[in-house]
Nucleic acid binder design. Structure first.
Lengths: 226, 226
DNA sequence: ATCTTAAACGGACCAGGGTCCAGTTTTCTT
DNA sequence: AAGAAAACTGGACCCTGGTCCGTTTAAGAT
């Protein structure tokens, strides 16, 4: 059993798939809350579905993950998939939750320089690099899960990342509009951009990494080179 | 007749919807080349389709622009729409071509500070502001046309914008990785981000504008405030 | 053990994007 | 002017995401 349990907001009955703008709780990293309170059968099916989706990806790539295929592979009805994950994006996100969670735990409470203890600038640099590599690994999934431009920035894990970045920036630049600056920084780490640069334009990840460090330097004004 | 003729790469026969990575020509601003060489009936239908799409948007918003609806409204078959524009995104892009073209003409040959004549930094600032306001105006359309993360950065007008930005940056920072820096700057102007900030988080455009100027200042190292 | 009820289930159903190809129209050639 | 080739047309058809609702089932109360 690969997927014991993930976080990811579980949806109310059905008609109301989700809060209009993300649930109130944002930084709930409390050791992967095993599915709040799902009925036994629901929990079992959820696990089956994630497992099936994973297998489908391994076999046919992300494109092979059609809602019907997942349902069939998991031995449940299509409606169940939608009830559980809301829509395809939700399912894909759920698949990403594990690594998102790990990352979150790392920058919130892991060892420096990513975690607390190191100077904010160092943490920022480390954060970008970490995200960069994680994104490169899960690029296909991230890309597929990203569609729907209007929801990109509302997802809990995105918001947590942004919030953390803002916080770090605020420590470095108390008087700047750190919220916007953080958005800019996050923009550099956008999966679509990473995809474009690495796959379509063939840039090595090292160059992106250098670019990130340069960007942090410039934005934070930490002795700009040149 | 609202849409005399737009640029927008016309697609080969059908099986090959488009070059894998954008046509070679990039900066063809030569006074809106009226549909290279379309057969008479094809050109007529193309115009009708764009007109119909525009009307549908006015009446039912972007969501009302279904390929079938457009076809019907224009009095042609569905296949024709796809042949002409490749897919829904292509149609929506075509709708944006006009303003994209205008913008392009402005920063390539218009009056300063957007056009040539002003210092590069000033042009950069003006560019961002111009894009910001244009985007805010056509936000819905831009958002709808944006889907498909893997193609975002390949579109001609996006590339032209990026290329221009890179060029300006290169004048200011000859030794930096201006290509990446330009990507960052463009990221700030991403429609999805603008949508998130203005509509979901209620920021006024003025704040974004200030943010842009601050960003340019920091990135170019032009006497960083603080 | 049984009853009640809220929750979960599943598959029929719908809509919209995208493909195909047989038939038509334009344009070029001679 | 006529014929041939190329390009265009349109609607039937397929696929997949998403919705609906009558039925089933887990889980707590009696």
């Amino acid at each position: 059993m690969l997927y014991a349990g993930f976080m990811s907001a579980t949806l109310p009955p059905f008609p109301k798939p989700q809060e209009p703008f993300g649930a109130p709780r944002l930084l709930d990293v409390g050791s992967a809350p095993d599915e709040p309170c799902l009925r036994a059968d629901a929990a079992r099916n959820r696990a089956r579905l994630l497992e099936a989706a994973t297998r489908l990806i391994a076999e046919h790539g992300v494109a092979g993950v059609t809602m019907e295929a997942v349902a069939t592979a998991a031995g449940v009805g299509k409606g169940t998939v939608f009830r559980r994950f809301g829509d395809r994006t939700g399912l894909l996100m759920a698949l990403l939750d594990h690594s998102a969670h790990t990352l979150q735990a790392d920058f919130l409470g892991g060892p420096p320089p990513l975690g607390p203890g190191a100077p904010a600038v160092d943490r920022l640099r480390a954060l970008g690099v970490a995200v960069l590599y994680r994104s490169a690994e899960q690029l296909d999934l991230l890309l597929a899960a990203q569609a729907e431009p209007t929801r990109r920035h509302s997802h809990p894990s995105t918001r947590a990342l942004h919030m953390h970045t803002t916080m770090l920036l605020r420590q470095i630049l108390p008087d700047a509009d750190c919220d916007l600056l953080a958005q800019t920084l996050m923009g550099y780490l956008d999966p679509a951009l990473i995809h474009h640069l690495t796959r379509q334009r063939g840039m090595p990840l090292e160059r992106l990494e250098a670019g990130w460090n340069d960007l942090v330097t410039r934005v934070t004004g930490a002795d700009v080179p040149r």
